[in-house]
Design a protein around this nucleic acid. Structure first.
Lengths: 142, 142
DNA sequence: CCATTTTGTTGTCAAATGATAATTGAATGC
DNA sequence: GCATTCAATTATCATTTGACAACAAAATGG
């Protein structure tokens, strides 16, 4: 298989992933949270706590903008900042109980949609899909 | 495997795909094209021609905005509109030679980066990755 | 100690995006 | 023929995002 064929498959695949993400986000994102803010909340829901620098790196966003978005989220009561005891320059970001609940609901909705989509698949097929994601994640999407 | 475990894997996977896409786009996107416009160009590079409605559907964008973005692309000489002969309400969108060349270069850059990333993989492994994408595309990311 | 680096904050600005309404011309269904 | 639907255009507006500059406080490395 040449690079070109592989790359074309990859391009189409990435586009399809993007579409599903867009669709799921659209349905599950709370109305008072912007898309980028929702991305930050999702990241926090999967991995806590995070520092501002980590958020800024992960989203390829200048630190100044990460700070702004996180401030807006804290103003909405969805996450909170705390000084790092070890390095007091750092801010440690966590979801609040309210934020965790909001993300729990959002993820629940998404989970239900994914479950619908996989209804027809057998247990063995699900495991195959799981392994496919794991493989691609490890080898392509580092 | 329960829904939750599968869903968590999916969420992490989608985030990683998004990060790679973001990184590749950042490096390959021409400076005079906005991110959304670049998405439209990529779509056209993979599938031509498209109508405005198809573009608007695919990106979940109101038709009015799709029209605006495509107009900007035509003003930049990267794509062109033509009346559909069969249904004269429709506009058929294609890349111009200039647009095709620009996307050829952009895709070439991305392809090279992907090739770097897969350098270590054997032919058999590449084929496995290819099949994994195909499987996930078909069964999950419809 | 002192210069430098790291981490974050605040403010500002232009550009990109999302959303809506009003309008046109072409097709479709009866 | 006529109402309705469809595809697209244009205009407008608020919001979101990206980018940059100036600043402050804490850590680091001599």
């Amino acid at each position: 298989m040449d690079n070109k064929a592989f790359f074309e498959k990859l391009t189409g695949f990435v586009a399809s992933v993007d579409r599903l993400r867009h669709e799921l986000d659209k349905q599950s994102r709370p109305g008072d949270v912007t898309p980028i803010q929702y991305g930050i909340l999702q990241h926090l829901a999967l991995e806590q706590p995070l520092t501002l620098s980590e958020i800024s790196d992960c989203f390829g966003m200048p630190l100044s903008n990460a700070s702004r978005e996180v401030r807006k989220l804290t103003e909405k009561g969805l996450c909170e900042k705390r000084d790092d005891e070890e390095d007091r320059r750092r801010q440690i970001i966590r979801l609040t109980a309210k934020g965790a609940q909001a993300m729990g609901e959002a993820f629940g909705q998404m989970e239900a949609r994914i479950a619908d989509r996989l209804e027809a698949e057998s247990e063995a097929e699900r495991e195959e899909l799981y392994r496919a994601m794991e493989l691609l994640h490890r080898k392509v999407f580092s």
